[in-house]
Computed example of a mutant assay.
Amino acid sequence: MKTVGVFDSGVGGLSVLRALLAELPGTRFVYAADSAYAPYGERTAEDVSERTHRITAHLRKEHGIDALVLACNTATAHAIDALRQHHPDLPIIGVEPALKPAAALSRSGHIGVIATRGTLGSTRFAQLRDRLVAASPRPLWFSSQPCDGLADAIERHDLPVIQALSERYISELLQGSPESPAIDTLVLGCTHYPFAGELLGHLSGTGVTLVDTGAPVARRTREVLGLPPAASATAQAPLLLSSGQPAALAAAAQRWLGLHTEARSLLLA
């Protein structure tokens, strides 16, 4: 049985874990939430990189992972290249805002992107966006909206704040993107955001399709591990670790994934 580490700044990566459990039911998962330091999107690149390296080393030493899914857009943007250099023998799958799938889905060619300020301000995001625009055979627009505080509100399951911030940022995105044609595709560029997907979809309007990264990342992980397509294996209960409050992670896993399992403290050397 393969063991895969799944790492995020908090509970947002559970949206990726949900897709991984469906795609790879016979795999053992160790989910590490660095909730004591969340959200990463409002921390410096140096802080994010340091935490990412420490937790990866812990998952290798203590849990013998065969691969790592970096289920955090900000950690991917700031740390994945150095992480791969430091661990050349470890398959590392990152997540990035799903700009390419969104471009393929969009009819109008105008795509909205909501993400943390750290992700949107990264060189990696700019390069991905610019490559797609340059290679597109038709006009393509990406309108981006940083969503300060939204990942943190989802992390805390603060429903009034999630509502208020979602209304504010979707309004700012749509009002600040008067270009014609209108936005018809919205990229959820943070793994926390799918847990507010129903609300975000309602606020965006019926003509807007939401796109996230969970399913593509799960398929890529299966391919990297060389495993066949999902069979009818019994899913293994993941090990949940949190640097913050383990009970909060367990509650989030129960609320969003239907998992009834305890979480443990993530104790780094």
Rank of each mutant, 00 (worst) to 15 (best):
G109W: 11
G12C: 06
A263T: 03
A19H: 06
L188G: 06
P101R: 14
A196E: 05
P25F: 06
P178F: 11
S232I: 00
A269S: 13
L70H: 13
A135K: 06
V133M: 09
A75N: 13
V133F: 00
I93N: 07
L83H: 09
E172C: 10
P228W: 01
D81C: 03
G201M: 07
L210G: 04
E167D: 12
G205C: 05
R124N: 01
V211W: 07
L267V: 15
W141Y: 11
G12R: 10
S49Q: 09
G94Y: 05
A248E: 09
A135E: 13
G214L: 08
G176Y: 08
V187I: 06
G214V: 06
E179L: 13
T213K: 04
A67M: 13
H78V: 07
I183G: 12
G10L: 02
A233R: 12
H87M: 01
R18W: 00
T191L: 09
I55F: 04
A77E: 06
K2N: 12
A126C: 03
I65A: 12
H78W: 07
S177E: 06
D184M: 13
P160N: 10
W256V: 04
W141G: 04
V11A: 07
C72R: 15
Y40G: 05
E198V: 08
Q254Y: 01
F29I: 04
V161Q: 12
G112S: 14
A218D: 05
R43T: 03
L128T: 13
E96F: 03
R107K: 15
S143W: 02
A164K: 13
T27L: 03
A102M: 11
A103G: 09
C72Y: 10
T123F: 02
I111H: 13
E179D: 14
T206Y: 00
S242G: 05
V4S: 11
G189V: 08
S204A: 15
P178G: 14
G121K: 12
F29A: 09
E172T: 05
V211G: 09
H58P: 04
P91G: 14
L99N: 05
S204V: 01
I114Y: 10
R107H: 14
L132G: 02
H202C: 05
G201N: 09
I154S: 03
C147S: 11
P216A: 11
D89L: 08
E50M: 03
P216S: 09
R107W: 02
L70M: 15
T221D: 06
L99G: 02
C147D: 05
D8R: 10
H202K: 15
G64K: 14
N73G: 13
K61C: 06
I93K: 10
R168G: 00
G197L: 04
F125L: 07
R255D: 05
Y31K: 04
I92T: 06
A263R: 09
L199Y: 01
H58D: 10
S136E: 05
L257K: 10
Y37D: 03
R129P: 00
A248V: 10
L83D: 06
A32M: 08
S136T: 00
